[in-house]
Amino acid sequence: MLHAAGRLPPPPITATNCIDEKFRFLHDQKTLDPYLIAVGSSVTWRNLNFAALDSSTRQRLRPVNAAPCYLDIEETGQLTRFMVDRYDNVRTVLTVVAMRDFQQCTGDRFFSRGLLSGYLDRTVPSALIYLRNFRPKNFLKDVLHIRGMRDGSDIQNPLVMDPYGSGPLRIAEPDPRHDVVIDPQCFRQLADLAGWLHHRHIRMVVVTMPDMPAWIDRYDPGAVRSNAWRSQLRYLADQGAFKLLDGNRYRHDPRFVDPAHFHWSETAGFTRWLSQKGAFAPTALAMHE
């Protein structure tokens, strides 16, 4: 009955709707064979628009935006390893990051690989997952709101997915949100992931979000901490860990929703800029731009 009414939440692999909805998206794709996967937090999910690329590039990349929400760098590594183990032809991993992705890297596992594999392979029935991970409060809350999230009428928390898995944000009023504190362990986790991908002969591309001026003015005057964060990423890129594209070189005054997300109208231009800078090139270019 809930399914027929459009109110059935996704199977609760994690019991976090924006993560489980991305797993539902992957489950519903019958023939995924990506050359490029995008993995990360909602900074990756919300800010890429692969439809803006020309058709020959899309055909070559077969891109999938597998990023859900809320992931820190260590959790991004967990999901990346799962995706690379699952899809044999991945040759590029792309992640878009903001400072908030580096706030805490605890090493906690946020999903069961076996359960997610069974769900995607259709060897574990969805009904079993609902029973196994049933959380009444979360479930009832999602029943009330999931339809509006999926059709985009809930503009604050949309779960709309485009054909590649990206999720638009169209909130008109920008919000600088809150301050962040960096956990140095996250840089080590990012380097470990890059090393793991290198041994798999997979290219990693890391893209930083541009500074939102309102956030800088409120929390980081002079961009001292932002510059230090970017410098640490440049250091890792110079060691050969990954290709780095600094979003501060994208363009002046892009349209933000908050410090971690563009308005959807900005994502096409941002994605084309990434293409121009070699993010989707078949061979590695200079390690940072």
Rank of each mutant, 00 (worst) to 15 (best):
E21V: 04
F25E: 12
K22Q: 15
K22T: 06
R225A: 02
P282V: 03
W45N: 13
S126V: 05
V93P: 11
E75Y: 01
A223I: 01
V93F: 12
T31K: 11
R249D: 08
R62C: 07
L140R: 11
L71Y: 04
H3I: 00
D217M: 00
A51P: 00
V160S: 04
K243G: 06
D253C: 05
A286C: 01
G222K: 12
W215G: 02
L190P: 03
A281T: 11
S42N: 08
V160I: 15
D220C: 00
A284N: 07
Y235V: 01
N133K: 11
H263I: 08
F110G: 07
F270W: 14
P136S: 12
M161K: 15
A5S: 06
M209P: 06
V124S: 12
L285N: 11
A284Y: 00
T123D: 08
Y164P: 07
T267R: 12
D33H: 02
Y70F: 08
T95N: 14
I146A: 02
N138D: 15
V43H: 09
Q59D: 09
L53K: 10
A66T: 04
F50Q: 11
E75R: 13
L236W: 06
G240M: 02
D253F: 09
Y130C: 08
Q189P: 02
F82N: 00
F256C: 03
V181W: 01
S166E: 10
L131W: 14
R60V: 09
E74V: 08
T267V: 05
F110S: 03
W229L: 06
T57K: 14
S226D: 09
A15R: 13
Y164M: 09
N157G: 02
K30W: 04
D220S: 04
D179S: 13
D88R: 15
I202S: 06
L159V: 03
N138Y: 11
R58G: 05
L116T: 11
R234I: 00
D121A: 14
F270G: 00
M161R: 15
E21T: 05
T31V: 12
W215N: 09
V181E: 15
R132M: 13
W229P: 01
S55A: 14
G40K: 08
F280M: 08
A52Y: 09
L115P: 02
A67K: 12
A194K: 10
R203V: 03
L8M: 12
C69P: 05
A172H: 07
F25C: 10
V97M: 08
S265A: 13
D220Q: 04
I155V: 07
A67Q: 13
Q232A: 13
H145N: 14
T76R: 12
A51Y: 10
G152A: 07
Y164T: 05
